[in-house]
Computed example of a mutant assay.
Amino acid sequence: MRLRLTALFLMLLMPAARAAPAPRQVDIPLSAGVLHAQLYKPEGEGPFPTVIALHGCGGLGGHSDPVLPRYRDWALQLLKAGNAVLLPDSYGSRELGPQCRVKELHVKARRERVADVAAARGWLMKQAWVARNRVSLIGWANGASTLLWAVRPQNAARDAVPDFRAAIAFYPDCRISAGLGWSTRVPTLVLIGANDDVSSPPACRQMVEGAQGRSALARIVVYPDAYHDFDRANTPLHAAAGSTDAATPERGHLGTDTQARADSQKQVAEWLAR
């Protein structure tokens, strides 16, 4: 009994575990409507390096959570490293649900979502706490495909403020970009699993290799044995076709690869610190 009471007393003396910081919603004007975004910001006045994080086809949040765990985990990791993180909600802002299995997309990566990136960047450039020369991009799947369009030289902003510092694309669909002779004006890192049968590792390799010599730095890391969503925590490998979840692709396989996940975290930190 005395041991039990002593243990209880020690627990009461210990500081309570700090809850994960909650994001703050910000509203960003668009040419038509408003782009809702979730912001994680370090304490203090800054200026802080800032990352615009682009969700995949499943959307940014769920029914009761403005940011799904897979994006929240990354946001908190980036926040811990001293970055502010802005997550635009391209689908929720337009009152749309997941778009993974929608045949006729009304919000396209190369059009509406690129416009969202430009609006998010424009909003950040007006914030005193932002290190304007250290704003970067990161995206997953459809968000990564958006990123590939956003960093093309043709989509450079016409203002005089600094361009994006860096860009990181997790398993984008590179097939269209590879066929168009993609290049980037921003140092861009592509991370993809060798077994990704949702996106196309060969197309991504072709895209990056084809940009050499006529582009800003572009690099690709292909993880052996890894599949789509390899960086998503606690996701057993499974076939998407057997799922009724509208927030997953119609085909291919999804699942965590612990080694690729750990290395990708290291790669992201190093690429952003360039």
Rank of each mutant, 00 (worst) to 15 (best):
S31K: 07
A246H: 10
A216L: 14
Q259R: 06
N142E: 12
A150F: 13
A233R: 13
Y171G: 00
A32E: 09
V151W: 08
Q77S: 15
P49G: 10
V190N: 05
I176V: 12
R24E: 15
V221D: 05
W129T: 10
H63S: 15
R121A: 05
W74Q: 10
G61D: 13
R165L: 04
P202I: 07
M14C: 09
R121E: 10
G139V: 05
G213T: 12
C57P: 10
W74H: 05
A141H: 10
H63V: 15
M125C: 06
P88H: 12
L86N: 09
A141R: 05
P98H: 14
A273Y: 05
L54G: 05
L137N: 06
A119D: 14
V222Q: 02
R18F: 07
T6E: 14
L12N: 01
T248K: 12
A247I: 03
R251F: 13
D116T: 04
R113L: 11
V222L: 02
K126C: 03
V186W: 07
L237E: 04
S264D: 01
C204A: 05
Q77F: 14
G252L: 04
L30C: 07
D27C: 06
R251Q: 11
E45Y: 06
V190L: 05
R113P: 04
D163C: 07
G56M: 03
E209T: 02
R24Q: 15
Q267P: 05
S264C: 02
G56K: 05
G242M: 08
V268I: 12
A17W: 11
G92F: 14
R111G: 13
Y171L: 02
A7W: 08
N83T: 01
